[in-house]
Amino acid sequence: MKRRQVVIKGSSLPVLRIVVRDGDAGSLRTEVADTLANARPLLVEAIAVLDLREREASELAAREIVDAVRVAGVRLAAVLIGDRNEHKSLVDLDLPVIEAPLSARDRSSHSPSEEQAASNGSPANSIEPAAEAKTAHQADSQPAEPDLAPAYLTRPLRSGQRFYAQGRDAVVGAPTSRGSELIADGSIYAFSPIRGRVLAGASGNTSACIIASHLDAELVAVAGVYRTFEAGDLNALGSGPVSVALSLAADGSERLTLATLAGSPHMQRR
């Protein structure tokens, strides 16, 4: 059978989401510039979507925000709007507009899940075509494109060294030392002692987690929520395997929760 030259497939690309909330025109513009300037290293080469879903009013036209973001050198792929936004005011933007209402959880936490943003935000993949793509994909009966395999650390990570699993999970099969940095955009599964810094969900994935057989870290972070440890802080968790994940607190903030893999959470951040 002749191999088809054009195949439509579903996909989910990692994109950054720039969330702009309410504010008056003047301060908003400077804040956009400041925030983006601070996030410079993160934004190099990255694709971003502009998330306007948390804006109630629109004192500042979407056009101006887009311009401010572009001036800062960010490659914008789309604009996300909720049902509250005025679709009409965005018609003159030369960007795809994606309507994706905030869920109840998103609204309370002010932080929609990353998967949603990622799939919604990828330029070639707005909601309806995605459904079509799936059908076409199934009809084609080709094996699904595998996700990126995890990056596997096999040699000890020394002080001053950094291991970065870009856009994927990390599996750790060699010890990491004090002063080292182990970073993954996805989750981290460690079967050797972790003694340095360990950061999961580095590009904002709040559902990333860290599972470690022996956690003796200086710092742990998930999606930017971090916690440092003094000597002995982690003793309360015993010597067994530990999980670190974000959980939603009653006040809507995200907390870093450390727990033994047996179950009950022992320590919480904030």
Partner: peptide, 13 residues
């Protein structure tokens, strides 16, 4: 020990 660890990293790279 930390400096030795750093040096091992440098040898590795």
């Amino acid at each position: 020990v930390r400096d030795a660890d750093r040096m091992l990293g440098i040898i590795d790279s």
